[in-house]
């Protein structure tokens, strides 16, 4: 059986909120190392990958591999009943037809219990190779959201260019064109504001802004976002879910190709 207790319901609430417009139904795959999710959007252009390692929970117990097939709209309805600071416990049997969710206020004076019906989901799984990216950018997540939102007002696509001069986001549309250039920046007093750029070779790729703006719904999960680019491979946008390494929410986006 599965029993997983999260100290803050906020994490799961925000994850589901960030991905529910991209994917409707998905399996939460539970095993002894934690809870993972991988799902593509309907058009197979974007992929969501979530990993919550066992050490993100206390306690965590999962004796066998369990797939929890969840409709995210339904899960959203149940999670709405949890306060951000509630303690959240997930429970399921080995071959479950429902997921039990318990929300407890921190001072334990309120306990809410819900059962969510599960479904059988037969989803395609993609093997994502470990990649050494040509460019890795770590920046404030709200800054990335602002760039994507601002450029989407002009165009449906953005070209992201990484070079020794910095990272340049360029778009052009019917009313005109625009660009934003980011340079490495270190704020000694406020580390969250840092922009870190690692570059091994120049990169230029074009992406649909509609998807990028969608990914940015995860900005509330983490102060920083990591964006990884290599020529002719999907973009990776990654948000840390906890201070523990390995627990993250990742989005992959297939590039636009040719002219």
């Amino acid at each position: 059986m599965l029993e997983a207790r999260l100290d803050q319901a906020e994490i799961l609430k925000k994850v589901v909120d960030a991905i529910k417009d991209l994917v409707q139904d998905c399996n939460f795959d539970c095993n002894d190392s934690g809870i993972a999710l991988q799902a593509m959007d309907n058009s197979h252009v974007a992929l969501v990958s979530m990993n919550l390692q066992a050490d993100s929970f206390a306690p965590y117990r999962c004796d066998r591999n369990i797939a929890l097939g969840v409709n995210l709209t339904s899960l959203t309805k149940v999670l709405r009943a949890a306060q951000n600071t509630d303690i959240l416990t997930l429970r399921a049997l080995d071959a479950p037809d429902s997921l039990n969710l318990v929300f407890e206020s921190q001072d334990k004076d309120r306990i809410s219990e819900y059962d969510l019906k599960l479904m059988d989901i037969d989803q395609e799984h993609l093997g994502i190779p470990e990649t050494e990216y040509a460019a890795t950018i770590k920046m404030p997540s709200v800054e990335f959201r602002r760039i994507c939102t601002d450029l989407m007002a002009l165009s449906e696509s953005v070209t992201i260019e990484a070079s020794k001069d910095g990272i340049k986001f360029t778009c052009s549309g019917d009313i005109g064109n625009g660009s934003v250039t980011l340079r490495q920046h270190t704020n000694v007093e406020n580390e969250k504001e840092n922009i870190e750029i690692e570059l091994s070779e120049p990169v230029a790729l074009t992406f649909s802004l509609k998807y990028l703006v969608n990914f940015c719904k995860a900005a509330g999960l983490s102060n920083t976002v990591t964006i990884c680019l290599s020529n002719e491979v999907p973009l990776l946008v990654s948000y840390a879910l906890t201070s523990k390494a390995g627990s993250n929410l990742r989005f992959y986006l297939a590039p636009k190709i040719g002219d």
Binding site: M40, H44, V45
Partner: peptide, 14 residues
Amino acid sequence: SSQQSRLEGFFKVM
């Protein structure tokens, strides 16, 4: 203009 690619063009379907 540019064409939107799909993820299966880059990642292997398991």
